[in-house]
Amino acid sequence: MTTVPSFTLRAPRYPEDAEALATVLTAASPDWPTTAENLLRWQATRNPELFHTEVLAERDGQILGAGAIGHDDFSFEEWRYWGNLGVHPDYRHQGVGTALFDELLRRVKERGAREVRTMVSGSDRDAPGRAFLDHRGFRVAWERFESELHTASLDLGTFDPLMARVADAGVQLVPLSEVLGWPEGRRWLHELDWQLFQDVPMGTVLTKRSLDQWVKDELEDPALQPELSFVAVRPGQQDPLTGPLVGYSTLGLNPGGFYYIGMTGVLRAERGQGVAKALKIAAMRALDARGGGLIKTFNDAPNVAMLTMNEALGFQRTNTRYRYELHLDGA
């Protein structure tokens, strides 16, 4: 019989553990790598009013895995929590994931947790993770499709008529970097984002973040590429909440070298004119001018309109991400 060396659980120490944690979490989830800088920034900007706790497993100074759980700031309920954990592939099947999970679940149960959510990829690599959740009573509650394209695969000139129609309709596509310099730009974007998300079918009731927290989370995220993100503006319109802004689309850059679409949306009154598609084309053209790159996008299964648009643009579906939910006793 082989004896597996023991390990200990402890709280992470920042900034000392950041580099090693990023290495472990990236090895555990190589499709979405992270960095020490990302982890430290999140620690510095997360909402301190919401519960959050972390734990890592360590053996002889080596971090084997880590997990975190806290209030779901995107869909807040006092009894709902969102958790993630990852174990380095070299240290799996040694009880590390079970120990991390049990400790995190114990902490939120003490707080009266009724529901725990997480997201797992449908890739073959993540089959053990899905089995881990199934064994512990989690069930799939939602699907999100992942698609991708490379700008080199497109003839962006074929979209000239669309871009002309949008311009003729009086809508200007302005780089986000420019809008951020407007005195009311951040406030308008905050309100626009909130209104747009109301129409995204995500299978959950959303929570509106404060302007300050939203700016920290979204606009000050180093991954955001303001010069590759675009805002649809109707000059002369002055809505009390959104000003002249009628839509926007963002691109972020992952440490893995690929880009991802963070949000694309257009106000209801402006739909049906091709503005959303034009926003994405503007971003693709800006990225192509920079040298091009791979773009990933993530859309919830009921969002048929956006899925159809992305397919028309040339996005190819590559994966499905599953939101798992665990409903605890009394939930």
Rank of each mutant, 00 (worst) to 15 (best):
residue 1 M to D: 10
residue 2 T to Y: 02
residue 10 R to K: 10
residue 11 A to I: 10
residue 14 Y to G: 05
residue 19 E to F: 00
residue 20 A to V: 12
residue 23 T to V: 12
residue 24 V to N: 08
residue 25 L to H: 03
residue 27 A to H: 08
residue 28 A to S: 12
residue 31 D to H: 13
residue 32 W to Q: 10
residue 32 W to K: 09
residue 39 L to K: 05
residue 43 Q to K: 14
residue 43 Q to P: 03
residue 45 T to W: 02
residue 48 P to G: 13
residue 55 V to S: 00
residue 66 A to M: 15
residue 66 A to L: 02
residue 67 G to P: 03
residue 69 I to W: 01
residue 72 D to Q: 11
residue 73 D to N: 13
residue 75 S to K: 05
residue 76 F to A: 01
residue 77 E to W: 11
residue 78 E to K: 12
residue 79 W to H: 14
residue 80 R to V: 12
residue 81 Y to P: 00
residue 85 L to A: 00
residue 86 G to E: 06
residue 89 P to D: 07
residue 91 Y to P: 06
residue 92 R to T: 11
residue 93 H to I: 05
residue 96 V to E: 00
residue 96 V to M: 04
residue 96 V to C: 07
residue 97 G to A: 05
residue 98 T to D: 09
residue 102 D to L: 12
residue 104 L to G: 00
residue 110 E to Q: 14
residue 112 G to D: 10
residue 114 R to P: 00
residue 115 E to S: 11
residue 132 F to E: 01
residue 133 L to I: 07
residue 133 L to S: 05
residue 134 D to E: 14
residue 136 R to Q: 06
residue 137 G to N: 05
residue 145 F to K: 08
residue 146 E to I: 00
residue 147 S to N: 04
residue 148 E to M: 06
residue 151 T to N: 08
residue 153 S to M: 07
residue 153 S to Q: 15
residue 153 S to D: 15
residue 155 D to F: 04
residue 156 L to K: 04
residue 157 G to F: 05
residue 159 F to P: 02
residue 159 F to A: 14
residue 160 D to R: 09
residue 163 M to C: 09
residue 167 A to W: 01
residue 167 A to L: 09
residue 168 D to R: 14
residue 170 G to L: 07
residue 177 S to R: 07
residue 179 V to H: 03
residue 182 W to T: 10
residue 182 W to A: 06
residue 185 G to Y: 08
residue 185 G to A: 04
residue 190 H to M: 08
residue 194 W to F: 14
residue 198 Q to E: 15
residue 198 Q to L: 15
residue 199 D to R: 14
residue 200 V to D: 06
residue 202 M to F: 01
residue 203 G to C: 11
residue 203 G to Q: 13
residue 206 L to T: 12
residue 209 R to V: 01
residue 216 K to S: 06
residue 217 D to P: 05
residue 218 E to P: 00
residue 218 E to N: 11
residue 221 D to G: 03
residue 223 A to R: 13
residue 225 Q to F: 05
residue 226 P to C: 06
residue 227 E to H: 13
residue 230 F to T: 07
residue 238 Q to W: 04
residue 240 P to M: 13
residue 247 G to E: 03
residue 249 S to N: 13
residue 251 L to C: 01
residue 252 G to D: 12
residue 254 N to M: 12
residue 257 G to R: 04
residue 260 Y to P: 02
residue 260 Y to W: 15
residue 262 G to K: 02
residue 263 M to W: 04
residue 265 G to Y: 02
residue 266 V to H: 01
residue 267 L to K: 10
residue 269 A to H: 10
residue 274 G to C: 08
residue 277 K to I: 04
residue 279 L to R: 02
residue 281 I to V: 15
residue 282 A to V: 09
residue 285 R to Y: 09
residue 290 R to E: 15
residue 296 K to F: 12
residue 296 K to G: 00
residue 297 T to R: 05
residue 299 N to E: 08
residue 302 P to D: 05
residue 303 N to T: 08
residue 306 M to T: 10
residue 307 L to K: 06
residue 307 L to M: 14
residue 308 T to D: 11
residue 310 N to E: 05
residue 311 E to F: 02
residue 312 A to S: 13
residue 315 F to R: 01
residue 318 T to N: 03
residue 319 N to K: 02
residue 320 T to F: 03
residue 323 R to T: 14
residue 323 R to K: 07
residue 324 Y to K: 01
residue 324 Y to L: 04
residue 326 L to P: 00
residue 329 D to C: 01
residue 331 A to C: 05
